[in-house]
Design a protein around this nucleic acid. Sequence first.
DNA 1: GTGGTCTAGACCACT
DNA 2: GTGGTCTAGACCACC
Lengths: 120, 120, 120, 120
Amino acid sequence: MNFDPMTPIWVQVAHLLQTDMVTGRLGPGEKLPSGRELAVRYTINPNTAARIYQKLEAQGLCEVKRGLGTFVTEDGARIDALRKSLAGEAVKRFLTGMDRLGVSREDAVRMIMEEGEEHA
Amino acid sequence: MNFDPMTPIWVQVAHLLQTDMVTGRLGPGEKLPSGRELAVRYTINPNTAARIYQKLEAQGLCEVKRGLGTFVTEDGARIDALRKSLAGEAVKRFLTGMDRLGVSREDAVRMIMEEGEEHA
Amino acid sequence: MNFDPMTPIWVQVAHLLQTDMVTGRLGPGEKLPSGRELAVRYTINPNTAARIYQKLEAQGLCEVKRGLGTFVTEDGARIDALRKSLAGEAVKRFLTGMDRLGVSREDAVRMIMEEGEEHA
Amino acid sequence: MNFDPMTPIWVQVAHLLQTDMVTGRLGPGEKLPSGRELAVRYTINPNTAARIYQKLEAQGLCEVKRGLGTFVTEDGARIDALRKSLAGEAVKRFLTGMDRLGVSREDAVRMIMEEGEEHA
DNA sequence: GTGGTCTAGACCACT
DNA sequence: GTGGTCTAGACCACC
């Protein structure tokens, strides 16, 4: 795995886990990999792995059960809020990118609709 | 500079230069950095740097003048075509990302319009 | 194989392949020798061989299929355009040669017609 | 100087001298370089150089004056015949080349006339 | 096996 | 100084 050295590793790994939650690859109540396993899988420090779960727990996305592990929250609203948050960030990134290219929001929407037609 | 090891270096550097052309940071007819300078700036091999300009020239984005350097094309149509190409790629990336998040094209468009209102 | 040191090797080898395409010795869709084989056959560097196919591909004369090889295009129009291009170059070379000999275009044409009668 | 290893060197050097005679770079009665000088200039064997002048003399293109050197013939007819000979060879080469490209004599002539118009 | 990419370092022609 | 070409040899992804 390669990380962008500009943003903290824990943010990037957390992002991966968040995406898995939203897409359903990690369903509600499902057990997340242990801190040690996470550390091995991404070759990061166990401390860093621990921080990731602390942050996710603070966002209400997972629950730590001592001696059992950490589990994806069963609160669908949380997941849905996460989905909206991630989508919102993606939209912002997209719009700023299009803005840099000198493409207006209206044109961006038009291009999206045309792309949609191809897939229809 | 850090490169994504998944995509060729020359593609990534070419993308940087292309973006500069579209945004106007590199205006029509303006001199591009020499191959050697590009190699130093991004710590890549001069050969790789040369390939970048060969590709850009093949796309009609720059003109090579032996002994003088390579210059951004003055053909505005080329730049405009590039803008559309880059925008199209951004749209595709955006849509696939939203699709992974389970967001439909209609919802994506709605989010964009709402974002637009905030800026309005 | 002996190369004229005045013109790039890749140009000369490309010319050989182009001629084979136009004359039909390399038919549409036919597999071209692999880059490595080309390198051995003409005792050139594999890198140079690769460049030849890159140039031919850029001219739309062949299609590269990763892991399979590169194949002569099946687009007859491309081949025809190539034929015209090669013929045009031959005409230019011929005319400059005749000019050096002090032979006018009209006389050159007359000589060609007479040559033609012999063959008729 | 680079020679085509397929045809005898003396033929190639003789061709160079012949061309100079026809174009006027070597005028009638003008002194040709000595055998030794020819040998040095083209890094060929003095024997080979001597043979060249023997052949040229046999064609009536130059006259050997012992102790003085060899001189271009002053017989204009000889030069003119040479011109026609060289031109004839060029025409033949041109036609066979066009034939290989699948271009008829008529089309070849047409292309020549069009090239002529550009220069007119 | 195929082509694609990259590095290292060389020589050349042109301005 | 510029780009153009060439060699040598390496690693990778694809089929």
